[in-house]
Amino acid sequence: MASVSMEQGLILAGVLFALGLIGVLVRRNIIFILMSIEIMLNASGLAFVVAGSHQGAADGQVMFIFILTMAAAEVAVGLALVLQLYHRFKTLDVDAASRMRG
């Protein structure tokens, strides 16, 4: 039974990251954008875990926990912003927020 190699794990992470990136760039709905960002963060977390497992060390998982923390905080603030945006512009279109340029 051939085991998984590190390259394969990293490629998987890369594919997920690229998909998340496409999602961020294509979508206009801000909630979709936030979801895509979650995908990207998750992908990077996967890369850490793959590397950590390759070493047989706990460090990769620790890094994943930090990323998880960051993602949680980011989603909390991001969704609060979504609420505000919707409250103000009555739409979820990010391009509507371009009036806030500074």
Partner: peptide, 21 residues
């Protein structure tokens, strides 16, 4: 690169690493 053995690294090790290093 190289193969990943899939040897489990449990919660205990992670916890030690987390609250130490």
């Amino acid at each position: 690169g190289g193969p990943i053995t899939g040897e489990p690294v449990g919660a205990k090790q992670v916890g030690i690493s987390l609250f130490d290093t």
